[in-house]
């Protein structure tokens, strides 16, 4: 029997960096979230993939916002689909690594604290 597969095509560079895309195949089960798929990738395929998340499932931390098939969405509430899904970092935020962008409020960053003494 064929297992359904979700293919995650992950853009790992910011919009100004040289293109860097990884392609991961994840076993698909109905009901899973995109974040479930990304966590599977990190545990089973590629631990070097960085993303931002904290609460995993409750949609309370609001940290896992990325571009999913060109639309801004939360990885934890967007359902995984048994097809190609294109994931990319938020385009309008400074890029840190892979799917992670700088979304911390400016006055809650280390450099702000250093300036404030």
């Amino acid at each position: 029997m064929m297992t359904a597969i979700a293919t995650l095509i992950v853009h790992r560079a910011g919009k100004d960096g040289p293109e860097k895309v990884s392609r991961y195949e994840v076993p698909y089960a109905p009901g899973q979230s995109v974040l479930d798929g990304l966590r599977y990738v990190r545990a089973r395929i590629d631990p070097t993939l960085s993303m931002r998340y904290s609460c995993i499932n409750a949609n309370s931390c609001k940290e896992c916002m990325i571009l999913i098939d060109g639309t801004v969405g939360y990885a934890c509430t967007t359902r995984l689909q048994p097809r190609d899904m294109v994931l990319a970092p938020l385009p309008n935020k400074p890029h840190l690594r892979d799917l992670v962008t700088e979304i911390a409020p400016p006055d809650e960053r280390l450099d702000h604290a250093l300036k404030g003494g």
Partner: peptide, 18 residues
């Protein structure tokens, strides 16, 4: 100095307590 490994006030359990 209030530091968090995640974003301030977003991580941890309190925010998740329904």
């Amino acid at each position: 100095l209030l530091v968090d490994r995640s974003l301030i006030g977003r991580g941890g359990a309190t925010v998740m307590a329904q």
